[in-house]
Simulated scan of single mutants.
Amino acid sequence: MASATMKQWTIDHPDKDMEGLRLEEVSLPSVSDYDVLVKFEAAALNYRDAAIAKGTFPFAHKYPIVPVSDGAGVVIEVGSRVREFSQGDRVITVFNQGHQYGDIDPYAASTGVGGTIDGCFRQFGVYSESGLVKSPKNLTALESSTLPGAALTSWNALYGLRPIKAGQWVLVQGTGGVAISGLQLAKAAGATVIATTSSEEKATKLRASGADHVINYRDQPNWGEVARRLTPGQAGIDYILDIGGTNTLDQSLKCIKMEGIINLIGFLGGSDQSQPGFLDALSHICTVRGLYVGSRAMLKDMVQAFEANNIRPVLDSKVFTLEQGKEALEYLAAQKHFSKVVVKID
């Protein structure tokens, strides 16, 4: 059995410079009948984690909280009534612990790991049996840790409302975790992918990751029309993973196909609700859909897809240690990364 104490990061209070973060030594959590004790080996960061530390996250969270929703590790101990897991199993966390299957509801949306339930920025964590799934057999712990948040959000965007088909067109925005995993999943489904970015360096990486077309939105501010012209008959894009909020929605509307789906995922570009008007969705005859990650059932399906297609998540070149947790969050917040920022936990 592990030592009686462990290291963990806690956010005591929100602060624009993330000064509420502290690394502390605490007792190991105890295991009850339906619980599983996980020794974390890796965690992956989302923009949400930095927003919670800064106090700018608009959805359910509390303080103090152990941050970070996405973790991967090995099962150390199981409660007497646990049936799905055994000691030694490799597992990942379920982002919203209460979202088991089907549509999300207000309760499930309030059960976010690292938001209202203590997260993965620590050496050990206890979760209900229903709050974990087994990791893909083909991935390392660092790779597996990227799946619960960004990858599952991309999976939901492509399969949650209307499953993607081979030959369709997908547009992803930027080079964050959602965009890159969306690119990989879309390519595995046989889709053609357009990616947008702001630099030639990132454009090169996007092409190396499988993007069929890359548009530099700084050079082409009207990138929506450029993207539409790339599609057969200029019919438009079937699925858009919109990360930028209201700064990008107007361009997404310009290139969406009739009956296409714009998935509103992020708010990196802002959350001004005045522009564009949502009646534009009617004039373009499309669905504009907000989504919040996905269910445990979806996560299990996606794990099978990663195994079957041997999809390997793309990691940023810089890997942090747990002791460098604040530095890792600052690196993410500064948007210096490509794809997923990961933290190795010993």
Rank of each mutant, 00 (worst) to 15 (best):
Val214Lys: 05
Leu152Met: 01
Gly160Pro: 09
Leu152Ile: 08
Ala166Arg: 13
Thr175Cys: 09
Gly177His: 10
Ile215Thr: 00
Tyr159Glu: 14
Gly236Asp: 03
Leu158Cys: 06
Pro221Val: 05
Leu241Ser: 01
Arg228Trp: 12
Val214Leu: 00
Ala188Asp: 05
Ala157Asn: 11
Thr153Arg: 08
Asp238Pro: 01
Leu161Pro: 10
Asn156Ser: 15
Val172Glu: 03
Tyr159Cys: 14
Gln168Met: 01
Ser154Asn: 09
Val193Arg: 05
Asn216Gln: 04
Thr153Ala: 06
Ser154Val: 10
Lys202His: 12
Arg162Ile: 12
Tyr239Ala: 02
Ala195Asp: 06
Gly176Ile: 08
Trp169Gly: 12
Gly176Ala: 10
Thr204Phe: 13
Pro232His: 08
Trp169Glu: 07
Ser181Lys: 03
Val193Ser: 06
Val170Thr: 08
Thr231Phe: 14
Ser198Gln: 00
Gly190Thr: 12
Ala208Tyr: 11
Arg229His: 15
Leu206Ile: 06
Gly224Glu: 00
Asn216Met: 04
Leu206Met: 09
Ile237Thr: 07
Lys187Trp: 04
Tyr239Phe: 15
Thr197Glu: 03
Ala203Thr: 12
Ala195Val: 06
Thr153Glu: 10
Ser209Cys: 14
Pro232Thr: 04
Asn216Lys: 01
Lys202Pro: 14
Leu241Phe: 00
Ala189His: 02
Ala188His: 05
Pro163Arg: 07
Gly233Val: 12
Ser198Cys: 06
Trp169Pro: 11
Gln173Trp: 05
Gly176Leu: 10
Ala179Asn: 06
Pro232Val: 07
Ile215His: 02
Leu185Arg: 03
Arg229Gly: 14
Gly177Leu: 11
Ala195Lys: 02
Asp212Glu: 01
Gln173Thr: 04
Thr153Lys: 08
Gln234Phe: 13
Ala203Met: 13
Ala157Tyr: 12
Ala151Met: 04
Leu158Phe: 08
Leu183Val: 03
Gln220Val: 11
Leu241Asn: 04
Gly190Asp: 11
Ile237Leu: 05
Ala235Met: 14
Ala150Asp: 12
Gly233Pro: 13
Arg218Phe: 04
Ala150Phe: 09
Leu185Met: 08
Ala179Thr: 07
Leu183Asp: 06
Thr196Tyr: 00
